[in-house]
Design a protein around this nucleic acid. Sequence first.
DNA 1: GACATTTCCGATGGGTTTAGTCAGCTTACA
DNA 2: TGTAAGCTGACTAAACCCATCGGAAATGTC
Lengths: 152, 152
Amino acid sequence: MKLSSKGLYGVQAIFDLAFHAEGRSAQIKDICDRQAIPPRFLEQVFQDLRKAGIVTSKRGPRGGYQLAHAPDRIRVGDIIRALEGPVHLLPSGRNREHAEESSSYQVAQDVFKGLSSNIEGCLDAVTMADMCHRADALGLQRRPPPAYVYAI
Amino acid sequence: MKLSSKGLYGVQAIFDLAFHAEGRSAQIKDICDRQAIPPRFLEQVFQDLRKAGIVTSKRGPRGGYQLAHAPDRIRVGDIIRALEGPVHLLPSGRNREHAEESSSYQVAQDVFKGLSSNIEGCLDAVTMADMCHRADALGLQRRPPPAYVYAI
DNA sequence: GACATTTCCGATGGGTTTAGTCAGCTTACA
DNA sequence: TGTAAGCTGACTAAACCCATCGGAAATGTC
């Protein structure tokens, strides 16, 4: 049982936004430089995150992405669900229709449903604010984007 | 985030063994009939379970599989680990070596390591005995294998 | 208005994993 | 010795993952 790269990249990127941008917006290029993520791939990831309402975007020069909520309101679970769908331990089998009738299968179904929501609970227990605190504890330096200065 | 069919089939099969065979042995054919699992596929699953020491096997006529431990000593997590490897949320990336140097990545790594062991904890909290109790509560009937009777 | 920059969208391709099948071998009971 | 089971390894079709690409749309700057 593992996470896809999309999920990891997503969490890294949102954390990056929370930690380095601090409410302002950042661009894909900069996030990828800091987090070592392929830029064209992160583009896709951000599309999903935008559709899920986790970030807002602005096009054009000096555009970029911005958190839609405060870091303590964004949970790891929100990101994972946006990128990989709900945690659902039951595989959507092909000839599972026949099995669904058997009450024997229902026991497994009940158990896995309970486990799924427990696991979601684990993921929802960690927020971006938590990750920022941990980063501070590690001594990680914030690199806020330079304030824009008009050319002379 | 989802489970593979192998994991579900494995849990179903071990539960079936605990519930219907009750310490005795059962054959693939019978388990598959009760649980609606492709027989040749369950064969593979049982090989992994045997190598992990969760079941023992006996070949030849009137052979079959048998639990290696009491149902309250077999946890869902044991089965999942045997069939899908340890829960490890971090994808084993290709160019992740470069990223590992960045302490930014280390934050994500720490968080996911913690989450992984929490999730294992969820899976280890449910035993086969628990599933049997639940099945009893659902009114599921046990179908023990008929005691062998010598032909006249 | 022209241009540069950045996000947005859809398609594509290589590689890996999954789910299931198959043929043939080994073991062991009767 | 025949037959019923498990054991082993190879195989395949489909799905999925991880990007990468070309171009379109929006928007700030000159």
